[in-house]
Design a protein around this nucleic acid. Structure first.
Lengths: 154, 154
DNA sequence: CTTATTGCAAAATATTTGCACAGCT
DNA sequence: AGCTGTGCAAATATTTTGCAATAAG
C-alpha cells in the first residue's frame, strides 16, 4: 500500500462514518503513517507542529484515538513516557521484544504463535479481537550499539 | 506454598537487601497475596485501610514497586483504572484474556506458547526476562453473567 | 447555514516525590 | 542512636474534557 492509498483509506473510513476530513486529521494521519518508528502522542504532536505549529495536543490525542479504534495504529505500553504507537495499516501483524538493557524495540512475527493465540481464544469460547505479545528481553551487552536509544529494528 | 511461607519469602527478600520489614510492608504483602483477584494500587490501598486506616497511598505504591521488582507480583495493563496487579509468587506463569464485552479477565496457560516465546527470544540472541501475552476477546453474549464486573476466572 | 471539529485551558487520572517525623534494627 | 521508611501534600506525567471560536459539508 502506497502512502497515498493509506491516506485514502483513512479518509474513506472517516467519511463513511460521517466524520469530517479536516486539515488536522490529514496532517496527523500523514505524519503518523510517514514514520516507522514507535512514537508517543507527544512526539507525534512535535512532528505535526514542524508542519503546522497550530495543531493542538488535544486534536492529536483525539485523532490518535480514532486511528486506534479503526485499527490503523496500535498502542504499545513500554513502561515509560506513556504509550508508543505504531503504524499497522497495510502492515502484517507482528509482536514486540523490548530490551531492558538497551531500550531497543524489536519486531517479530511467528505464524505458529499466531495460530496458537487463535486456538486458545476459541477453546474458551471467545472470538479473538486483538492480541499483544510483549517479550521483555536482555541483550546483556554493555556495549550494545542501541543502548539508551529507542530505535526500532524489524 | 502456604500464605505464611509466602510472607516469609518476601521478608527474607527484603532483609537480604537491607530493607526493613515494617508493619506496613507486612500488611501490604499479606493483603496483596491474600487475594487472587486482579487488583489496582487503589483497591489494594482500600483493602489495607480496612485493617489499618493510616496506611498511605504512597507506601502502597512504593511497596508494590518493590514486590514487582522482586517478581512477586505482576502488573497488567487493562486499559482503564490503571494497571492491575496479581499474585505470582508461588504460582505458575499464565497469560490473560480480557473480554471487551463483559470485562472478565480469564487466565490461561499453554506450554506450547511458552516454548515458542523462549524460542523466539533465543533466535534473536536475547535472554527472555518476562513476557506478557494479552488476548483481547469478545464473548459476544449480551446476557453474559460477568457483564461489567471485573471478575477473574481461571 | 448547520453542526462537527478545533484550540485552549482547566480538569481528571495515575503515580511519584520532598520533607519532617516515626519506628526498625 | 542512627538511618530507613512513612504519611502527607504537593508535584508530575499523561490524557481527557468543556466551551467559545472555526471551518467542513
Amino acid at each position: 500500500m502506497t502512502p497515498e492509498e493509506e491516506l485514502e483509506t483513512v479518509e474513506r473510513y472517516m467519511r463513511e462514518r460521517g466524520h469530517r476530513w479536516t486539515n488536522q486529521r490529514r496532517l496527523i494521519a500523514d505524519v503518523a503513517f510517514g514514520t516507522h518508528e514507535h512514537f508517543t502522542a507527544d512526539e507525534l504532536l512535535d512532528m505535526c507542529r514542524r508542519v503546522d505549529s497550530q495543531v493542538s495536543r488535544a486534536t492529536v490525542y483525539r485523532t490518535l484515538a480514532m486511528l486506534e479504534e479503526a485499527g490503523f495504529v496500535e498502542g504499545l505500553d513500554t513502561g515509560e513516557n506513556g504509550r508508543r504507537f505504531e503504524h499497522v495499516l497495510g502492515h502484517e501483524h507482528h509482536d514486540h521484544m523490548l530490551c531492558q538493557d538497551c531500550g531497543r524495540i524489536v519486531e517479530f512475527a511467528d505464524p505458529e504463535l499466531e495460530r496458537l493465540k487463535e486456538a486458545v481464544a476459541a477453546q474458551h469460547g471467545f472470538r479473538l479481537v486483538s492480541h499483544t505479545l510483549k517479550l521483555v528481553v536482555a541483550c546483556q551487552n554493555p556495549d550494545c550499539e542501541f543502548r539508551r536509544q529507542d530505535r526500532t529494528e524489524s
